[in-house]
Design a binder for these strands. Structure first.
Lengths: 240, 240
DNA sequence: CAGAATCTTTGCCATTTAGGCAATGCTGTT
DNA sequence: AACAGCATTGCCTAAATGGCAAAGATTCTG
């Protein structure tokens, strides 16, 4: 039970943009201030959180950077995928991403940013919105479960109907790649393709994303075969 | 108490190179297997750890990547330092690093890798050995505390005598930069300089490192003024 | 292929520990 | 200067924990 609370506190701090005080944390995490105080003291002792020198407010600690980095480094997939991400970015001019499936969503592991001055941003450690992104739809198509029943609308074009989504997922399985047209963010287009292992289990997802005016439907369709090629080659990749 | 155990488990998993089973984790973390089993179940529920599909063994989970990334992003110092790291790397040809001080050591936040084929490796989220690295010595010189009394020898050239170290630290404070000559790793030379805020508190550390045959004492001395310049300019940097 | 040896999980129970309340000491604001 | 909000600490009860032991599952070995 204490773990849950500690986790809630960490989540609150992760979600907060700025440093927070004990009471504020307690309120947002739904725990008693006294519990928060004690938990924070323990967390601080292990540097999972850190209090700012002057204000006494808390933010996430460096130990988490260490643990996160350790969780990342386990996945040597990144080393294998790096050259492919670069190749994809150079071929299309758009940002290429590598994600891996988790229990509830897929998460960005690595990316190669577009060199264009107008580029779409990617961030390591950012989870996908399963039903509203190309990566997320690949995740759902190949075994990912959708926890909640309701589909939140991120933009006017987000798929919010379960039946429509299921149909799209089936299509993706057939075609081998997914697209998302301004479904998570207005002005952002993306495609994604699964990396499957010998058992046809989903081990990773390659994605491409760019501004909708440049990375339009034609560009997406044109890039898809190359994306699929790299994705399917990734598993067989060097040494594996 | 449960938090400590959970942390111990995470540490074990972070340290382990490969996935581990419940018993093995319990043994290494010094907890009862039954406790480990229950703790792991809780941790897995929150995706702090994840069990491999086939084997049932555990490794660190993606949530940690998210939290670590969140802890990192808080520090917009990276954005400020990026161009300086690049400039330093281009001027010297060696790997430039940005670290920030924690409670017990300094940690690498960002780096720009040398373009030379022979380059020294850097890694985000790696803590410094305080007494055996240039970065660590800057950390100690400007307020960092040294927890343990004993100084472990990483190489034959590591400073293991407390008095010698104290003298070196005093010198660093005077001179404004630190050096490490194969003290953490044979064949690796490094220098580092503090980034101080208005109160002369240590907010970050810039470092340069390279192979000893190329980044020799002369090259280090030559690079030092430029490093100091960037480090002291960083705090005043754009917008701040 | 069978027996053995681990490994993993779960029920059980005494003990420890956590969590809420309330009180105290602080900090910063009007 | 008074006050409101914040952070911390005793205290006590209730609940979660951790060790033991046993059962189920899996793997190794002969």
């Amino acid at each position: 039970m204490v773990l849950e609370r500690a986790l809630a506190i960490l989540d609150v701090l992760a979600a907060a943009g700025s440093d927070l005080g004990t009471n504020e944390i307690a309120r947002r995490a739904g725990v008693n201030p006294s519990s928060a105080s004690r938990l924070l003291a323990t967390l601080a002792r292990h540097e999972l959180v850190r209090r700012a020198a002057g204000t006494g407010r808390y933010h996430l600690g460096l130990r988490l950077v260490e643990l996160g980095s350790s969780a990342l480094s386990r996945v040597d997939l990144r080393d294998l995928a790096r050259p492919r991400l670069t190749a994809l970015m150079e071929a299309t001019g758009e940002t290429a991403t590598l994600s891996i499936p988790g229990d509830t969503t897929a998460m960005t592991l690595d990316f190669v940013q577009s060199v264009s001055s107008v580029r779409s941003i990617a961030e390591i450690g950012r989870p996908s919105v399963p039903h509203a992104t190309a990566i997320g739809k690949v995740y759902l198509s190949y075994g990912g479960r959708l926890p909640g029943a309701e589909l939140a609308a991120c933009t006017p074009r987000t798929i919010t109907d379960r039946a429509v989504l299921d149909k799209a997922l089936a299509e993706i399985r057939e075609r081998g790649w997914a697209e998302a047209l301004e479904e998570r963010e207005v002005g952002l287009h993306a495609i994604a393709a699964p990396v499957l292992d010998a058992n046809a289990d989903l081990v990773a997802i390659l994605g491409l994303q760019g501004p909708s005016w440049r990375f339009d439907v034609r560009a997406m369709r044109a890039a898809a075969p190359r994306l699929i090629e790299h994705a399917s080659a990734l598993w067989r990749g060097p040494g594996r």
